[in-house]
Design a protein around this nucleic acid. Structure first.
Lengths: 252, 252
DNA sequence: CGTTCGGTTGATCATCGTCAAGCAGTGTGG
DNA sequence: CCACACTGCTTGACGATGATCAACCGAACG
């Protein structure tokens, strides 16, 4: 039951052995959400929530009703890192039916006190999130509408592919055009035009919540995509050393 | 000599007493940079660098020569957090003459092993950076050129004011129009027009590297500025408890 | 004294947003 | 079974925001 959580934290590892045991003994509450439901509200205090299944977005709704999406969460992602020490400043909303596993706040905070390697893993997870955000900032600030869209499609596909969630150049992306618009700082109408452009040019198609990559190379070139921006920020030396001393990483 | 570093980390505290002692014994190398000089190159491995004096920007230069600025660093900021566990993905460049104090990588990493409270402080610092980035994402994605500029001016002024670096509604902001453009995802020409607009409307003026706020209320309203986005992500409960048990925070 | 850098201005143009309308699929209640 | 409403997609017309191009100015500097 906790294997996924441990494997996910291990992505940002190395986790010391004591933590794994302790984590595997923890009670996780599992919750499911329908598409469109609010998974984490703004102002929530974090309790280490893991997205186990489905897709969700981290977003903020502005005073004037506009929305900005900060990132898309895939299975294995910790979705309330922003609330680690204070209340979250964004909300999480399900894009598709989701399963979320949650560690109690008290238990979680107690573990943080005892286990530095857990804190280190979380720190790396936050760094990874920050890096992905910087990629999005480049898109928002300096890339054309088509390039932004291509970059987002590359991200969505690439991340799911590394999780084994893509096949035949297809993966899930159950976002409506309004979601894509709010992720890329564009209008719905314009997103529609860009989408048609990508389809006409044979780069990618999105249909019925499924993203199909037609020409990966050209999509990467158009979107200036760098997979490095989404790699977990693990320390190569340290993690290699840890793997030697404690063989067997709980595979993803 | 190390007092500033300790005070700065304490902003993200609480730091346990042992860490403070250990930090105060560490040798810091101090470096100065002229305006325009490269302070931290891309791909550098972090060694806990503190901006002690001056202003700098965190930025990335794209393949096509375009530039995106991710944030402005003020005195007391840790500027190479992105490289905590891997190589930095952005560079840091001095906006004004800067003084940077740097802890050696080996020493720093050794301390991280021993002192969980230092790691926690760094984690909070990273969370703070991530939150500021999200504010910038909202600007880039959903705010007009004038609102973006107003928001940036509010940030620059507010942060320096909380450090005691502003007086008479003035603070340092030695950025050329091209810098502001690259921070806000706009062109130099357009920034110039926005700047003139803000001046004509009596909101703010920037001249000779000095930002002068003329009407804070209206600037905040125009920029939809929320100071919360820049508050250090300390845990209110924990830090209060720590202050009780270990009175005396080395004041900023 | 020429060069460079930054600021300023105007003219023109492209990207993208807004408005408006129509269409398809889906669910709902009469 | 059939309006009806609702949501999301599509398309066109129009306009605004902001980019690009070009030129000039002033200050700093070698």
């Amino acid at each position: 039951m906790n294997r996924l959580l441990i494997a996910s934290l291990d992505r940002f590892g190395p986790l010391r052995e004591g933590v794994r045991e302790r984590l595997s003994e923890c009670a996780l509450t599992s919750q499911t959400f329908e598409a469109g439901e609010l998974v984490v509200p703004v102002g929530e205090r974090s309790s280490l929530r893991l997205l186990a299944r489905g897709l969700a977005v981290k977003q903020s709704v502005l005073k004037d009703g506009a929305r900005q999406i900060f990132g898309v969460a895939a299975p294995g992602d910790l979705i309330d890192l922003a609330g680690l020490f204070v209340a979250t400043d964004y909300e999480v909303r399900a894009l598709a039916p989701c399963e979320v596993r949650k560690l109690g706040a008290r238990e979680f905070r107690a573990m943080l006190q005892d286990h530095a390697s857990l804190l280190a893993a979380l720190c790396r997870a936050v760094l990874t999130e920050a890096r992905a955000q910087r990629n999005a900032m480049v898109s928002l600030g300096r890339r054309s509408a088509a390039a932004r869209t291509a970059n987002l499609f590359c991200e969505i596909y690439w991340r799911q592919k590394t999780l084994g969630l893509a096949k035949d150049a297809r993966c899930a992306f159950p976002a409506v055009q309004g979601d894509i618009a709010d992720a890329l700082g564009l209008s719905v109408v314009h997103i529609h035009r860009v989408l048609r452009g990508l389809r006409d040019d044979g780069l990618a198609v999105i249909k019925n919540g499924v993203l199909q990559i037609l020409d990966w190379e050209r999509l990467v070139a158009l979107g200036d995509f760098d997979p490095e921006a989404f790699r977990p920020q693990i320390d190569e030396d340290e993690s290699a050393a840890a793997r030697r001393s404690a063989p067997l990483g709980a595979g993803a």
